[in-house]
């Protein structure tokens, strides 16, 4: 080969390599930048009082976001209770029995649902629950978040079930175990770790959703009171505080964002560490 051509190819290779490295740095750097900026802006307003107290009336100094933390836990928890079983069982259906047009439709619908703007899901929950009940509520917020979780959990469950080798299914069937028991008692536990991880990640994802809560959970400046009343949630409180004209609310929004971010990060890291020892199902 011609020397000059070879040198040119080497230069081009180096250039492309550098380009990919820069793009990779941008991709991961964004996360670090966000984390760093939120930590820097939020840390100064962070205190035990902030975590453990209710908001104070406008104009008074101090106050916290205890109600938003409790509210987020309630709304996200209820969303999980509703969304995870539906998502998991639908995923089982697709992985085990999912052939033909209906399965194709379910899979397709789940993928489309994954791409539906979350504010639309919020509107749907509004029409479904808030409007007939004539009331914003924790319940309606949880339903909206559950709708967002279902397609994520469903597709994840299906993926992990498909990773379980067919030989495991055969082994159980050959023991004279009925198919539904094989699915529920052998296949599902074998994929269990992956499915649970997916459910956790879906919870973390919806914990940060704001738009679907704007006209469902609605927000509340007072202590939590039940499932059928408006309720404060972290992302919604951040939104409200951030667009307010008050300096100390801005600071509190940063601190609340830091809390939310830390929670999401914690769940993510936990889920991934948990999954690692045996992603187990496929070797």
């Amino acid at each position: 080969m011609n020397e000059a051509l070879y040198a040119r190819r080497k230069r081009l290779n180096a250039l492309m390599f550098a380009l990919t490295a820069v793009c990779a740095a941008v991709a991961s750097g964004t996360l670090l930048a966000i984390l760093g900026y939120i930590a820097w802006k939020g840390a100064s307003s962070l205190s035990w009082d902030f975590l453990l107290h209710l908001p104070k009336p406008v104009g008074e100094k101090g106050g916290g976001i205890a109600n938003s933390i409790v509210g987020s836990a309630k709304v996200v928890g209820l969303a999980g209770v509703m969304g995870v079983p539906v998502g998991v069982l639908a995923g089982v259906y697709l992985a085990e029995y999912g052939r033909g047009k209906f399965a194709f439709a379910v899979r397709y619908a789940a993928d489309v649902m994954n791409g539906v703007p979350s504010i639309v899901v919020g509107l749907f929950a509004y029409a479904l629950i808030v409007h007939p009940m004539k009331k914003f509520s924790a319940l309606s917020g949880a339903v909206a978040l559950a709708f967002i979780m279902i397609p994520i959990v469903l597709r994840n469950t299906e993926e992990f079930l498909r990773l379980v080798p067919g030989t495991i299914r055969e082994a159980a069937l050959a023991l004279g175990v009925p198919r539904w028991k094989v699915t529920l008692m052998v296949i599902l536990p074998t994929a269990g770790r992956g499915i649970l991880t997916g459910a956790l990640l879906a919870l973390a994802r919806v914990a940060g959703e704001t738009a679907p809560l704007i006209f469902t959970a609605f927000g509340n400046r007072f202590a939590d009171n039940g499932w059928l009343n408006p309720i404060a949630t972290l992302p919604h409180t951040i939104y409200t505080y951030a667009i307010s004209p008050y300096e100390d609310w801005h600071n509190q929004a940063w601190a609340a964002a830091l809390i939310l971010m830390a929670f999401v990060l914690l769940v993510n890291v936990t889920a991934r560490v948990w999954l690692r020892p045996s992603s187990g199902t496929s070797h």
Binding site: A172, A174, G176, P189
Partner: peptide
């Protein structure tokens, strides 16, 4: 088939113990 398989067991090509 469920009843039949209890009377006629099977071992496969590759060992397939239940991983959990």
């Amino acid at each position: 088939p469920v009843v039949l398989r209890r009377a006629v067991g099977m071992v496969f090509q590759r060992p397939n113990p239940f991983p959990t």
